[in-house]
Design a protein around this nucleic acid. Structure first.
Lengths: 105, 105
DNA sequence: TGTCAGCTTACCTATATGGTCAAATAGGCA
DNA sequence: TGCCTATTTGACCATATAGGTAAGCTGACA
């Protein structure tokens, strides 16, 4: 149960979610590209990517001085899809519309 | 994105996960029953149940002095199933077996 | 070897959160 | 009303974690 909680905790941070979202949309990106697209610091990106990597969610590949990250956990898509759908339904029942951006994470 | 993270954060605590697990298995339980089955304090159970309720995950019903809680978010099952399956696969790839208890949450 | 770009790590601070204890609240009943 | 059971809430403490700054590391290249 502890491990399941850990898994959810990994996805409970907006920054990590945005990193995952970018990687999901683009396939493979360098830390620099992620930093630029999300407007976050190298330190922050690096730390969160390290966490995601430690959990087997992403993997990295070196090319010169750059390091490319990519998603390697196929279940991520599925989990996020389910959560996003349930969120939309939840808010819809209160008459609140959620923009389509949610679909992509 | 913040809301998605919140959703995951809700499931990122072992106590809440165990509460959800018990309710999932039994349908409807009082706080006292949950407290006894999980070996946690009333204060802790009550607080976590309140959190789950604030997020629309569970609902409660009063009967005399007792209060029955039940799951009302149908997507919970699906999310947990996906996560548990991916965890099993992940650990299996390292040659580690996960006991069947995971199936139930 | 020195230097630079790209990335990571160490250390610190502020914030968030889970648990406990004790007090408060609500319903049932004499 | 007063008391009991069931549950909730508030105050407090300890731990965990995200982000910032600065220093460290690695590969490329002159």
């Amino acid at each position: 149960m502890e491990r399941i909680a850990d898994r959810f905790r990994l996805l409970s941070d907006p920054t990590r979610l945005r990193l995952v979202n970018e990687l999901h949309a683009s396939g493979e990106l360098t830390v620099g590209e992620l930093v630029e697209r999300l407007g976050i610091s190298y330190a922050s990106a690096s730390k969160q990517l390290a966490l995601l990597r430690a959990h087997g969610t992403v993997a990295r590949r070196r090319e010169g001085t750059k390091i490319f990250y990519r998603i390697v956990d196929p279940s991520l898509d599925e989990v996020c899809t389910v959560v996003c759908r349930s969120l939309r339904e939840h808010w819809a029942s209160w008459g609140i519309e959620i923009d389509a951006a949610l679909d992509e994470s």
